[in-house]
Design a protein around this nucleic acid. Structure first.
Lengths: 148, 148
DNA sequence: CTTGATGCAAACACTTTGCAACGAC
DNA sequence: GTCGTTGCAAAGTGTTTGCATCAAG
């Protein structure tokens, strides 16, 4: 299927990025990247540890966490918690407002515009879901961090 | 400012929902709800514990976690981790695809459509950000769970 | 060879649970 | 008065760190 090619691209691209930034391409890092690229979907760190060790026994827990930290710092991987270690909670939105987040300094800016209403309606009809909210976060680097 | 009114509405609305569902309105629950409504932004559980205890000393850590679990189950609060206890990680999207998530059975459906490109461009210009990705998750209940 | 990266184990942080006591209704 | 809820403390998970060793470049 098409997925395989994409995964392959992902793996090469990520490894290239690491190498280009001067990081060594180790067995542990390679295994983490391959495993991540293999995921259809989000994965938690503990699940990733398990999956990585299945693919390449002997890789240590800590290396998985360290690789995750590295890839996130380089912007190659994203987490849903803005760098904090635990989940983030927020009131289910009654009015939609979302966040623009600088992944370097964690500065955030709210924006109110919601472009998802129409999409939500359409998806709901197609999939038979009843929706009550959504999370939209846009990641980037702010002007301050860009100028460093 | 307008925020205060909104917060007030939030608090009353949430407490009403709880009461309506037959849950008792306790000091601990009230403190958690007020604190949440007071947040400009996301908050992690540990930070929430601290903030709640500042507002109302004596409230136990466990009650904060239990209230968070309750509110999330009722759809009044959302977390960014889809119910899992730890952060979720994913490759920074090169092609945009997002997820529709049933918060009851955790079933997810991908969709490719991305309506955020234009918004992203506009926001980038306004705010001086350079973006490299975004997270979009739409929460609801799937047809199976709706029919139970 | 050199030095960054690793695996391990111990420390630390976060979350959940059991239970006696309490307080919302 | 009843029973759902609480606070506490202990147990259970998840994450980070120090350090001797290893292996990528």
């Amino acid at each position: 299927m098409g997925g395989a090619l994409l995964q392959c691209d992902d793996v090469h691209g990520l490894i290239g990025s690491l190498r280009h930034s001067g990081y060594k391409i180790t067995q542990a890092r390679r295994a983490v990247i391959e495993t991540l690229a293999n995921q259809a979907r989000h994965i938690t760190a503990p699940d990733l540890v398990e999956a990585v060790q299945e693919r390449k026994p002997g890789v240590g827990r800590a290396s998985v966490y360290r690789t995750l930290e590295l890839l996130t710092r380089l912007g190659l991987v994203q987490s849903s918690t803005l760098g904090s270690t635990s989940a983030i909670y927020f009131l289910a939105p009654t009015r939609y407002h979302h966040h623009v987040i600088c992944t370097e300094c964690q500065k955030t800016v709210e924006f109110d515009e919601c472009v998802l209403r129409e999409l939500e309606q359409r998806l709901g009809e197609t999939l038979g879901f009843q929706f009550y909210g959504h999370l939209v976060e846009i990641y980037g680097r702010c002007s301050d961090c860009l100028s460093h």
